[in-house]
C-alpha cells in the first residue's frame, strides 16, 4: 500500500514536470526569444575573456565563480555535520571496539596500496592543475586525492590521519580562495575578478587566477572528503 502510494505520487510529479516543461523550446533559437543567448556568448567570447580553453572551467571559475564558492561551502558543511555526528560521545561499555583487532590485509594489498598512494596523489594534482586545459578540475582532483587516502585506509589496518592537518589544509585553501576574490574586488571592482594576466592559451600558466583557484578548491575538496573517510573509518563498528 505504501509502495503504491509513493509510486503514484512519483508518477504524478513526473507527469506534472513533463507537462509543464513540454512547451518550453529548449535550445530552439528560432523562437521569438533566443534562449541560447548566454550559451552563444560563452562559446564565442569565453576563451578571449578568460584564457581557458576548457569552457566548463571558464564558466565555473570565471563567470560563475561565486556559485563555486557556495558549492565548496556546502561540501564543507556536509563534512562538518558528519564529523560532529560521528564523534558524538559513546555510551559506557561500548569502548572495546578499538581493541577488537581487525584482520590485516594481505601483503600484496598492503605494499600495493603504499606504492600506489603517492602516484594517485600526483594524478589528482595533475587533474586539478590542468583544470583549465583538459577535462577535470578541483572537484574531480579532490575526489581522486580522497580516493588515495581511502586506499591507504583499506590497505593498512590502523592507518590514522591527523584531523588537525586536514583542518589546517582545508582552512588555508578556503582562505586563499576568499583572499583572491577580495584582491579581485580591490583591483577590478567585483568579487573574484580575474586580475592576473591571461597568458597564451593552452599554456600551463595561463588563464590568470583560474589555476590558483582550482588548486585551492582541489586541496579543500580533497581534505574534506578525506576527513569524511577518516571519520567513517575512525568510529567503532557494531556489525
Amino acid at each position: 500500500m505504501r509502495a503504491f502510494v509513493s509510486f503514484s505520487v512519483l508518477a504524478l510529479i513526473v507527469v506534472g514536470l513533463a507537462l509543464s516543461l513540454s512547451h518550453i523550446p529548449f535550445g530552439n533559437s528560432t523562437a521569438n526569444t533566443d534562449r541560447m543567448h548566454v550559451a552563444k556568448y560563452y562559446l564565442n567570447n569565453g576563451v578571449k575573456d578568460t584564457g581557458a580553453p576548457n569552457l566548463v572551467t571558464a564558466v565555473v571559475l570565471d563567470y560563475r565563480a561565486l556559485d563555486t564558492l557556495g558549492e565548496v561551502t556546502v561540501l564543507f558543511i556536509a563534512s562538518l555535520g558528519l564529523g560532529i555526528f560521528l564523534s558524538w560521545p559513546k555510551k559506557e561499555g561500548s569502548e572495546d571496539d578499538d581493541k577488537r583487532g581487525l584482520p590485516p590485509a594481505s601483503l600484496i594489498v598492503r605494499r600495493g596500496s603504499q606504492f600506489l598512494f603517492p602516484l594517485i596523489l600526483l594524478f589528482g594534482g595533475y587533474i586539478f592543475l590542468h583544470g583549465h586545459l583538459t577535462p577535470g578540475g578541483g572537484f574531480q582532483g579532490g575526489s581522486v586525492i580522497a580516493s588515495a587516502f581511502l586506499l591507504m585506509f583499506l590497505g593498512n589496518t590502523g592507518y590514522r590521519l591527523r584531523q588537525k592537518t586536514l583542518a589546517v589544509t582545508e582552512s588555508l585553501a578556503g582562505i586563499t580562495f576568499v583572499i583572491i576574490g577580495l584582491i579581485g574586488l580591490g583591483v577590478g571592482g567585483y568579487f573574484l575578478n580575474n586580475f592576473l594576466p591571461k597568458g597564451s592559451v593552452f599554456a600551463l600558466f595561463s588563464a590568470g587566477v583560474i589555476p590558483i583557484l582550482y588548486a585551492a578548491i582541489g586541496l579543500k575538496v580533497g581534505a574534506e572528503l578525506a576527513g569524511i573517510v577518516a571519520n567513517m573509518f575512525g568510529s567503532g563498528s557494531e556489525g
Binding site: 590485509a105 587533474i127 577535462p135 574531480q140 583499506l154 573509518f233
Partner: peptide, 28 residues
C-alpha cells in the same frame, strides 16, 4: 584530452572492488 576520463576510471576503478573484498574478509 578525453583520455583523462578513462585514466581516472582505470586508476580508481579497483578501489570499490577492494572495499567489498575487505568487507568479505571482515577487514573494514
Amino acid at each position: 584530452v578525453y583520455l583523462d576520463v578513462a585514466l581516472v576510471y582505470a586508476v580508481l576503478g579497483f578501489i570499490g572492488v577492494l572495499a567489498v573484498a575487505r568487507y568479505m574478509e571482515r577487514g573494514v
